[in-house]
Amino acid sequence: MYEFDWSSIPGALPFLWDGMKISLEITLTAVVIGIVWGTLLAMMRLSSLKPLALFAAGYVNLFRAVPLVMVLLWFFLIVPKFIEQLFGLPPGTDLRLTSAMIGFALFESAYYSEIIRAGIQSVPKGQMAACSALGMTYGQAMRLVILPQAFRNMVPLLLTQAIILFQDTSLVYVSALADFFGAAYKVGDRDGRLVELLLFAGAVYFVICFAASTVVKRLQKKFHPA
């Protein structure tokens, strides 16, 4: 039988915590940019300007059709070179975290845009008509009336997507960036205790995500008491 030895974990906790900070940083950046860019994409997609709507539809469908791992891989290959040239940075600057953030943000905004589009469409059409009747412009109507209602309906979904995103940050493993999972893997590999470290990482993710989704479920009940 396998003999467990958990002794490498306590000493590694500061390193693991640093990793967790990177995971959270990526999650937070991607959520914020994702929601902002996603909202713009959703509005473009619903707008009557054909080129805008087409661009948004193409963007969203393309990103939703390809695997996140592949997008991340490509961002690690392409974005660093691009940024180096753009800002005249010396070659070899560590841009893995920046590329990861950009990759996640652009990828997730496609998913956020779909949630937001559904949210906007869930606001009754009469609301827009009422705004027009009051003499508001399209922008005013969106900002003052439609989006506030849409976001209220969407909060649980946006948060659920954030939990999924947090889980997905583990995929930066492909760039050897030491996020929480990467850190756990490195420690396990170094000490020959991969079994324990992987199980520990799984347990930590489970506790965080389970707790977060329980909170979201509570919120959902509060927003939409059945």
Binding site: Q167, D168, L171, F181, G202, Y205, F206, F210, S213
Partner: peptide
């Protein structure tokens, strides 16, 4: 269990 642990893990 299967929803709250990242696929990679």
């Amino acid at each position: 269990l299967f929803r709250n642990i990242p696929l990679l893990v």
